[in-house]
Design a protein around this nucleic acid. Sequence first.
DNA 1: GGGCTGACGGTTG
DNA 2: GCAACCGCCAGCC
Length: 106
Amino acid sequence: MSAVSDTFNKTVYEIIAMIPEGRVISYGLLALLAGKPGGARMAARAVSHAPLGVDLPFHRVVNQSGHLAPPEAFSGEGIQRAMLETEGVLFKSNGCVDMRKCTWTG
DNA sequence: GGGCTGACGGTTG
DNA sequence: GCAACCGCCAGCC
C-alpha cells in the first residue's frame, strides 16, 4: 500500500461522498476526478476493497457502460439497482443505468 | 524479480 | 448496439 495509492483512494472516497442522489459516476470518471486519468481499474479496486468504516454510496458507482457491480457486492442481485431506482436514477430496458442523463461529472 | 489478475476504458470489427 | 482486443497500473502469488 503506497502513499500515492492511499491518497488516490482517499480522493476517490471524497468524490463518492459528493455524488448527489439520483446520479451515478463511472470508474473512469471517478479516477479522472481523483487525478488518475485512465486509472479506472485503480478506482474499481479502491471501491471494491474499500476499508470498513467508510459509509459511502458505492451503489452510485458503475462502469462507463452503465453496467452495475457484481450482486455479491450488494448482498443480492438487483439490490444496487433497487437503491438507485429509489434515488431516482433512470434505467434502460437492458437493466443498465441511463448514463446519458444520470452521469455525475462533478 | 516476473507474471497473472481485475466491480475498467477506448477503439475496432 | 454488441463482442473482441489491447492498454492501463496497482496488488498479489
